[in-house]
Amino acid sequence: MNLNFLYHFGRYLILLRSALTRPEKFSMYWKETMRQMNDIGIGSLVIVGLIAVFIGAVTATQFAYQLQDSFVPAYYIGYIVRDSTIIELAPTITCLVLAGKVGSNIAAEIGGMRQKEHIDAMEIMGVNTASYLILPKVIAAMVVIPMLVCLAAAISIWGGYTASVATGLITDVEYIQGVRSFFEPYYVFMMFVKALVFAYILTSVSAYQGYHVKGGSIELGQASTQAVVYSDILILLSDYVIAIILTM
């Protein structure tokens, strides 16, 4: 088990080392990075937006329920929704969902190219496939996913507003007062750190799974599943590590 982990970890590092080399032609990498930004960013807008609305709505509704008949002021609902969204829910839930959507897509795309000998064909042309196929995805994700997370946080706060104000749990003045109270800009920094780290994890781990796939369609499916599972585990683990480091 440990040896297997070390084998994969070593191979992962070797792949990353190959990926982090000078591009053969900058314009080709730029084009590919733009394409990936579009696929990851625009392609994930709807699902991220939808999830964010419900994260905010559920957080607001549940806290409103817990705070009723207590001495805690009602405007605290806005404050709790804002902070829980920014610090934890927006980056973590968004990236867990993106690990499923983007991660499995990356593993399947690269794995399919491996099986159809596209990667071999590129290698023989002289292309550094580790770099050309992985680097643009990682860079695109690290640019676009923090933007998505930021958007998710904003939508989530709006979702909390809609759920709590529209249903009469609190007034809009109270909710907005809560959202504007005790604001710590450092939490936004934490959100971006998490988003960057999670984006890196979900793309590089998924690319690794796809790049080394062997066998047929069953193995490709397994690689795609493993990409999501390992990405999710590593995202949760790193979430904890980041929480410790940034709150020390």
Binding site: E117, D120, A121, E123, I124, M125, G126, N128
Partner: peptide
């Protein structure tokens, strides 16, 4: 890779 750029391959 430098030599591979002088190689063509039909799969």
């Amino acid at each position: 890779r430098a030599i591979r750029m002088e190689i063509g391959m039909l799969f």
